[in-house]
Amino acid sequence: MFEAKFEDGGLFKKIVEAIKELVKNVNLEANGTGISLQAMDTSHVALVALQLNEKGFKKYRCEKSLTMGLSIENLQKILKCSGNDDQITLRTQDEEPTTLSFTFESKNRISEFQLNLMSLDQEQLGVPDTEYSSVVRMPSNEFTKICRELGNINEAIGIETSKEGIKFYVKGDIGEGQVSVKINDTEKPEERVECEVDEPVNLSFAVRYFNLFNKASALSSQVILSMSQDQPLVIEYIIEEMGSLKLYLAPKIND
C-alpha cells in the first residue's frame, strides 16, 4: 500500500502547475524514501526532475516501490476539484494499481477521486551528481523578470559568470543589451544574490524554456542556477522541507 499526505495541498498543485507545460505524460515513482519524477519535455531538450522526501509529508507509507504513469492534463482536471488550502492524500491499494486515489480534505468537506493510471515506457536518464563550475543563487522573481525582458529582444539569452557576478545578455535584429545582477548579502534571505565561480562560464540558452521553467518560481523565492561550460544548466527550486524541483536545459551550440 502507498499513502502520501500533503499537509499543504496547494504545494502539490503548484508543482503540477510548474511542470504542466513542459511534460505531458509522466511516471511518478514512489518508494520508501519518497516520491520522484523524471521526464524529458516533448522536444527532448529539457529534463524535469522532482524529488519529494518522505519526511516532508504529514503521513507517508510505501511498502513496495511503485511506478504510476499519469497524464498531467488529467491530473490537473482532478486537482481543480480541490481547494488551495486542502490537505491532499494520494493513495493506491493494490500491488499493481490501475488507479491513483486522491482525497481532498478541508474543514467542511472531504472529496474522493480516482485517476486512471497508464503504462508508460519512458527512458530514465542517469544524471550524475557533478560539481558545477559556477553556481548562482538569486531571487526567482528577478530571474523571471530578466528572462521576460530579454526574451522580447531575442529568442536566445546568454549567461556569463565571473568572480564579480552574473551577466545576462542578448543580441537580436533590433539591437543588443545586457543585465548584470549585483552580488549582495542582505539580511533578507529571499533577496540575496550569491555567486560561487570556480571557473567562469559563457553559455547561450533558448529563453522560451526559461519562461516555462519560471512557472516554478511560485515554489521558492530563490532560484539556483548551476552551470559548467558546454553542459546542460540546472535551474533548481528548493521546496522547503520537502525536496526540490530541478529543471535541466541543454545549451545552444555555435556551429
Partner: peptide
C-alpha cells in the same frame, strides 16, 4: 546559426 543537442545526448540511460 546556434544549434541545440538533445538532453539525452548529455546523460546516459539509467
Amino acid at each position: 546559426g546556434p544549434n541545440q543537442r538533445t538532453i539525452n545526448s548529455y546523460f546516459s540511460p539509467k
